[in-house]
Design a binder for these strands. Structure first.
Length: 468
DNA sequence: ATGTTC
């Protein structure tokens, strides 16, 4: 794939064949790799109604149809499509960061007790376990009311909603567009991590790049934090499966052709498109509630051991499509913005930000790979790509490759030698997430900042990890 | 990511 260097951090793929717009890849000469993701960037550029460009963030890698680390916006009033592959199977997968009233130096003497407690109270792995057993009509309410329903039922409080994207619940969710099978899968999983790259980490603020913004976010140097990375479990997965199948069946009848069946799509303003968006919104609410109750459970463990609880910094999703208003070629347009492995990064002054964050911009939470740093970033005024930035380190090797070449016991020893207390789930799961299978998160974040997509606020390092 | 192959 031919990349044309526009600036040190911005590269272009010129339109060819059925591409309607160029590809724009935010990367660097050092970071750029091609595992097939750039071909996918070009494929996405062929989607009906796509505007401006098919974007890739610095952590881009190959995914189902769309690349992970991709951003694509379509013009809803001009037949623009929505594609489940542009959101991903783990709908509204995201990150929740909570800050403890505890210093790094306080942690070590209680580390084992805290990690044992977090391990005990955090269901994880495929299938089993959840911290919240929902009452009879609970799932339907959760799908429409998200974290607000959890608060109503006694989990956490108003601040948890104020510091969650969309106040804890996205509008326009319709449980009727969620299949019985999807609901069945989701019913017993509210409050569980899942597996793969999902985790709960205890971290310490290792560096602060912007004191004023960090203070507004509720963070300071050497503070202990808890970061939770998880999504919508089997429910979101089943919704994606159901709607991809439906769109794959009806796409040809609409006269839509795509270069890859995994780009199955429908006009956002069509029955199939609206049905997916309504089901996706339900999964987004599920994911918010999932992270919410896991955060409350973690806070109870910390309070039990230390007498100090947790305050929410922010909760953000990096797998979602949203209907947003943006200026394109001088016109205000209604766009369906797909972010798959990409994080919304609202600039200072944006009306959707809570009042206490409006001056500094949206907190952007970037989980590193296991045992490496994580970041807190902020949105910037000049942000390109519809106010989006990266979402993590980004894989360089497949799960299979990582598992084949990693000794899980050695990896665990290495982590513990670096002072990270490990509470794993399975040896294979640990091996698949070896940091050597990922890009360097410090490099990814530096490129994202260099490309003008966001700015650094704080760097966090792991003290303990509960692995999904 | 995922009751890791409906």
């Amino acid at each position: 794939m031919q990349l044309v260097e526009e600036t040190p951090y911005r590269f272009r793929i010129d339109p060819r064949g059925p591409m309607r717009v160029p590809g724009v890849v935010f990367t660097s000469r050092a970071l750029a790799t091609d595992d097939g993701a750039l071909e996918q960037v070009a494929n996405v550029a062929t989607l009906p109604g796509i505007v401006r460009a098919s974007y890739a963030m610095p952590d881009v890698h190959w995914g189902y149809g769309f690349p992970i680390g991709g951003v694509a916006a379509t013009d809803v009033r001009a037949g623009g499509v929505v594609s489940p592959g542009g959101v991903g199977f783990d709908i509204s997968c995201g990150v929740r960061l909570l800050a403890a009233d505890l210093e790094r130096s306080d942690f070590h003497r209680v580390a084992e007790r805290i990690m044992d407690g977090l391990s005990r109270e955090t269901p994880r792995g495929a299938g089993r376990g959840a911290v919240w057993q929902l009452p009879g009509d609970g799932l339907l309410r959760l799908l429409t009311e998200g974290a607000r329903y959890a608060v109503e039922r006694g989990w956490g409080g108003q601040r948890d909603l104020d510091r969650c994207e969309d106040g804890g619940a996205v509008p326009d969710a319709d449980p009727d567009r969620v299949s019985t099978r999807a609901r069945d899968r989701g019913l017993g999983q509210v409050g569980s991590l899942g597996s793969g790259n999902h985790f709960l980490e205890v971290q310490a603020v290792d560096a602060v790049y912007d004191e004023r913004t960090a203070t507004a976010f509720g963070l300071h140097l050497d503070q202990v934090c808890v970061m939770i990375h998880c999504g919508s479990r089997g429910l979101g997965h089943q919704i994606c499966t159901d709607h991809v199948r439906r769109m794959d069946e009806t796409m040809a009848d609409r006269g839509i052709t795509v270069p890859d069946r995994q780009l199955a799509c429908a006009p956002a303003d069509s029955p199939d498109g609206r049905a997916y968006l309504a089901a996706m919104a339900a999964a987004a609410n599920y994911a918010r509630a999932n992270r919410h109750v896991l955060g409350v459970a973690a806070g109870e463990v910390l309070r039990e051991v230390t007498g100090r609880g947790l305050d929410l910094v922010y909760d953000t999703s990096h797998n979602l499509a949203r209907i947003e208003q943006h200026d394109v070629d001088g016109d205000r347009r209604t766009l369906c913005v797909h972010r798959k492995g990409a994080t919304r990064a609202l600039p200072p002054g944006h009306p959707e930000l809570p009042p206490d964050l409006r001056e500094v911009g949206q907190p952007v939470l970037i989980p590193g790979s296991m045992g490496t740093a994580s970041y807190v970033l902020a949105g910037v005024p000049e942000g390109d790509a519809f106010h989006s930035t990266c979402h993590g380190a980004g894989r360089t090797r497949s799960r299979h490759q990582a598992a084949r070449t990693t000794d899980a016991r050695q990896l665990r020893r290495d982590l513990e030698r670096h002072g990270v207390v490990v509470r794993g789930n399975s040896a294979r799961g640990l091996a698949e997430e070896a940091p050597t299978a990922y890009k360097d998160v410090d490099a990814v974040v530096s490129v994202a900042e260099g490309a003008g997509l966001c700015r650094k606020v704080a760097r966090l390092v792991p003290l303990g990890v509960v692995k999904g």
